[in-house]
Design a binder for these strands. Structure first.
Lengths: 203, 203
DNA sequence: ACCTGAACACCGTTCAAGT
DNA sequence: ACCTGAACACCGTTCAAGT
């Protein structure tokens, strides 16, 4: 909480939080480990007591993001019991806003700057859990005969790709001309979700 | 072609090509301008005669990627006249394989490491053109009464998000457990495309 | 156990100087 | 007009030394 904590006790967490702040201000390209250390009030070599290298710190940031995402997914399910369509919408909505609110963290999580095959076990598990939650939602929908009669994998992959693609495109700033406010994003999300549900082809 | 060309004449293009090679070998994080210069056979300050800074070189790489993408889109349309469903499939397929074959270039194009609001005019135009081609395909489909009776923007955005999301997730290595061969990717693309066309909900 | 400061090899960028 | 090489301020990482 206060400066005393930084110098003994919780430097690890402090470094992660500082990294997130600097990341969302300067972007992934502008983030240096030395700057994080300085902002956290320690020497440039102090972080090496807590993280193997710069990548390990970035992985810790990504993991925090995945944990938030997973919590949101669980929340979406709990808030709308027995309504897979609403569950999926709110899970997607959380995803969208997480990505839009912390685009640099999102890039770290999804853009492969950190290569998934090199991820530590903790990160891999947390990431897998959030995908698992989405799959659970769709499974519910299939069991309730709401979703199409296709392999769960196909439905999940398509839903995931759409949400992911829309979010990343927004986070990367590709629609910054069309979208500015949070209300815009909400609207965009709803329209895309509806199109995803009913399909591109005439019904 | 040969070393003589490097030292006078076409250093600019040579640097772009060298950058692409090193990029796909070392990743965006491992690429240094000095290494590109060295690999191209010039001093580390020579690139500055042709590019304002490192970002400008990376933009040139991204632009080449967008041009390839746009060419693929045009090709997809030309090869399947009067068949928007096939046009869209092949456009998506090209997108998918471009991203999978040159994942690092793709990240440069789409992941927002270069922020679109800072892009030079040439890059912005080339990028816009490839989206325009996709929109044209869907417009064709609407006119032919094949696609759903929704705003073109909704259909385009949904299709684009799905293709983009699937491609980026693959490029980032998020499905490297499920997918290995090119045939796998082709299959995956077909299944997702079919789900996108018909929607998640029962018909 | 945790942190510091010097050191090393690297980087992006600039600029006087060479051809 | 195009390229070089020294120079500067920065970076990630290591390691002996301090508390």
């Amino acid at each position: 909480m206060n400066k005393k904590t930084y110098h003994h006790g919780d430097l690890r967490n402090s470094l992660v939080d500082t990294a997130i702040t600097l990341l969302d201000r300067d972007g992934i390209a502008g983030l240096s480990l030395r700057a994080v250390a300085k902002a956290a009030g320690v020497s440039h070599s102090a972080p090496y007591r807590h993280f193997r290298d710069k990548t390990a710190l970035l992985e810790a940031v990504a993991q925090k993001g995945y944990k938030n995402l997973h919590d949101s997914n669980l929340h979406a399910v709990a808030e709308h019991p027995d309504d897979p369509v609403q569950q999926l919408y709110h899970a997607g909505r959380s995803y969208l806003f997480l990505v839009v609110n912390q685009p640099e963290v999102a890039k770290l999580m999804f853009s492969g700057v950190l290569r998934p095959e090199d991820w530590g076990q903790a990160l891999q598990q947390t990431a897998q859990a959030s995908i698992g939650a989405l799959m659970g939602i769709i499974e519910n929908g299939k069991n309730a005969s709401i979703f199409a009669d296709k392999p769960i994998e196909d439905l999940t992959l398509t839903a995931l790709s759409t949400v992911h693609g829309l979010s990343m495109a927004l986070a990367a700033g590709h629609f910054s001309d069309k979208v500015t406010s949070e209300a815009d994003i909400e609207q965009l999300g709803m329209r895309v979700y509806e199109t995803l549900l009913s399909g591109l082809l005439k019904r």
